[in-house]
Nucleic acid binder design. Structure first.
Lengths: 340, 340
DNA sequence: TTGTACGCGTTATCAA
DNA sequence: TTGATAACGCGTACAA
C-alpha cells in the first residue's frame, strides 16, 4: 500500500498492460500502428497509473523537445507581452511549450540566452528584430535550430521574419505630419544601437522629409531608452531647441505618453501648440488625453502568425516564409494642423 | 575540413582533452574536485569545441532541470507581465530558465499546464493565487515538485505564498472611500470564481462597510472579466441602479480605466459626481485623467522575492516560507469627498 | 502487429 | 585525483 514515490514510467505502463515498452510508446506516438484491442488495454493502463511521459527522456531519444524558445527585450511592455501571449496560445494549441528569456535590449545577454535555449534543446527560436551578429546565425545553423524573426519584416534578410514594415509605417505617419503643415519636427527615438526597429523608424521619418524635398536638419532626433520618464525628459530637451519643433514624433507610444505628460506638466497645449505622435497603438494610446495619433500594429495577429510559421519550419513544412503584417495609421487628437 | 554536423558532446571534449567523461563532467559541476592542471586542459577543450551541455541529458541523469515553470492567467496584463519579468530576471541570475504557460483564468487549462510542466521536469512551479483543487496539490506533492503561490498572501494556506493581503488592502481603500463620506458604493469586481484575489478584494470592501456599521446592501457588486470594455459596461450598469452610487471601487486598474472612460463618455464628472478607485497601481493609473486613487502593489519586488524563495525551496534550503509584500494606498484625483 | 535491444548525453557510484 | 560503468526514460531499427 502507499503509492510509489516516483512517477510511473513507460515500463510500469508496459507491465500493467502486459505488453512491451515499444508498444506503449507506439500507442502514444502513432496510435495507428497498434491494433485497437491492445491500444485500449494500454491506454487504460496509462490512465490507471496516471502516466505522463518524461519529456527530458523523450527529448533525448527523439532529438525533439516540443518546446520553443523566445527571446524578447522585455515582457514588461504591452507590445511584447501581447504578442508573446498570442504566440504562446498558438504554441500550446499545437502541443508546444514556451521557454522565455529576456535580453533587456542587451545583445550580449541575448547571445547568452540563445546558447542557453539551444542547449535546452528548443526545437525553434523566436527572436525580435534582425540586428544581430552573423556569428549567431551561424551558430543556429550549425545546431540546426530554425529561427524566426518577429516585430520586423525584412524579406531580403538572412532570417525569415513575420513582422511589419517599420520604416514604411513611420514614413506614412511622417507624411501625415507633413500634410498637417509641420515643417520643424522633433523625433524621440528608442536606442537604435542593436535595434533595427528603432533605426528603421527613424529612417522612415527621414524618407518622408526627403520625399517632401526638405532638409534633413528639419528633423531633430533624440535617442533615449524606452520609458515614460525618458520620453518626458527628451520632450523637455526638444522644447529647449531653437527653433522649437511644432510636432514631436515618438518611436513608440510609451515615449509619446511621456512626452505628453511633460507637455501637460509645463502647460504646453497638445495639439494646440505642439502635435505628438506615437507608434504601436497600445491600449493606453486611446485612453490618454489627448488621445494619441499612432501606428496600429496587430500584435496578436503577428504573434499567432509567428507561432504557426515557426512550427511549420520546425516540422519541416517550410524553410521559412516571411510575412508582412499590415499596419495602419490611427488618427486621433494629438496630431493637428500646424498653426505656424 | 567542415565542422561536424552535430553538437559536441562530453565525449568529444573528453577525447580532445585526453581524459574521461567523468572528469569533464566534474570540471563543469564541481571544479574543486579536479586538479588545476587537468582542469585547464579540459576547459580549453570545452572552449575550443564550443561545447554546451545538453540539458535534456543532464536533466535525466541528475533528475534536475534547472528550469522553473510559471503558470499565470495572462501575460497580456501589465501586472503579471511586470512581476513575471522580475521573476525571470532573478531566475536567470541563479542559473534557471523559465517555462511560462498561461491559463486564461481557466482552472482546467491550468491543471493541464501543471501536468505539462511537471512532465517537462521543472524543478519548481510558480502559481498565481491559492484557489485550486486539493487534488492538484496532491499531484505536486506526489511528484515532489515544490510550488509557490504568488499575488496572494495566505500564511495559513497549504502552499507557501509570496504575495500581499488582498483583503486587507481593499479594506483600507474602502475605509478611505467611506472616510470621504461615500455611503452608496458600487464595486466592479473581476470574476471571483477560481480567483481568490478577486474574492478577497470584495470581502475586504465588505469588511470596511461592516466595520462602519453599514448594511451590506450599501455595496452593489458587479462581476465581470478583467478588461477595459468590461469595466466600462459594468460602470454603465451601475449608473442605472437606484440609488446611484457616489463611488465606484474597481477590482483592478484596468476595470477602473474602463469605468473612467465610460464616465467621460457620458459626461459624468469624476470625481465631481462620482469617485472611482482602482487596484494595482499600473503606470496607466498615474497617466490617465483624472489620475487614479488605487492600491500600490510592488510587483517587481514580489516577482523577485518569489524567485528567490522558490529557488530556496528547490535547492532544499527552505520548506516554503510565506512572505507578505506591503502595499499602500496611493491617493490621487479620482477619489474625492462625496457631495451628497 | 508486437517485442528485443540499443542509443541518446549526462551524472554518480565505485574502484583504482 | 581520475576512470569505468551503470543508470535515467524514451524512441526506433530490426527481428520475429
Amino acid at each position: 500500500m502507499g503509492k510509489s514515490r516516483t512517477a510511473p514510467t513507460l515500463n510500469d505502463v508496459a507491465k500493467e498492460a502486459g505488453v512491451s515498452t515499444a508498444t506503449v510508446s507506439r500507442c502514444l506516438n502513432s496510435p495507428a500502428r497498434v491494433v485497437e484491442e491492445t491500444r485500449k488495454r494500454v491506454l487504460s493502463a496509462v490512465d490507471k497509473l496516471g502516466y505522463t511521459p518524461n519529456m527530458a527522456a523523450r527529448t533525448m531519444a527523439a532529438n525533439r523537445s516540443y518546446s520553443i524558445g523566445a527571446i524578447i527585450p522585455t515582457m514588461d511592455n504591452a507590445i511584447f507581452a501581447r504578442g508573446l501571449q498570442a504566440f504562446q496560445d498558438h504554441l500550446r494549441e499545437k502541443g508546444y511549450s514556451l521557454l522565455v528569456a529576456s535580453s533587456a535590449y542587451h545583445p550580449d545577454v541575448e547571445k547568452d540566452q540563445i546558447r542557453t535555449l539551444v542547449a535546452r534543446g528548443v526545437d525553434g527560436l523566436l527572436l525580435i528584430g534582425h540586428a544581430r551578429e552573423d556569428e549567431i546565425y551561424d551558430y543556429l545553423e550549425q545546431h540546426q535550430v530554425p529561427a524566426l524573426v518577429a516585430w520586423s519584416y525584412l524579406p531580403e534578410a538572412r532570417q525569415p521574419s513575420v513582422g511589419f514594415n517599420n520604416r514604411g509605417a513611420m514614413c506614412d505617419l511622417a507624411r501625415s505630419v507633413l500634410a498637417a503643415g509641420h515643417r520643424r519636427i522633433g523625433l524621440i527615438s528608442g536606442v537604435t544601437q542593436g535595434n533595427d526597429r528603432a533605426l528603421s523608424r527613424v529612417d522612415g521619418a527621414r524618407d518622408a522629409l526627403a520625399e517632401a524635398g526638405m532638409e534633413p536638419q528639419a528633423l531633430t532626433v533624440i535617442e533615449t531608452p524606452y520609458g515614460i520618464d525618458n520620453g518626458a525628459q527628451a520632450f523637455a530637451e526638444l522644447m529647449r531647441r531653437e527653433p522649437r519643433p511644432t510636432a514631436v514624433m515618438c518611436g513608440n507610444d510609451v515615449l509619446a505618453v511621456g512626452a505628453l505628460r511633460e507637455a501637460t506638466r509645463v502647460g504646453i497645449s497638445v495639439p494646440g501648440e505642439i502635435s505628438i505622435t506615437g507608434f504601436d497603438d497600445i491600449e493606453l494610446a486611446d485612453i490618454i488625453t489627448p488621445s494619441l495619433t499612432t501606428v496600429h500594429v496587430p500584435h496578436r495577429e503577428m504573434g499567432q502568425k509567428a507561432a504557426s510559421e515557426l512550427i511549420d519550419m520546425v516540422e519541416g513544412r517550410s524553410a521559412g516564409r516571411s510575412t508582412c503584417i499590415r499596419t495602419h495609421i490611427v488618427s486621433r487628437a494629438s496630431l493637428a494642423f500646424s498653426k505656424t
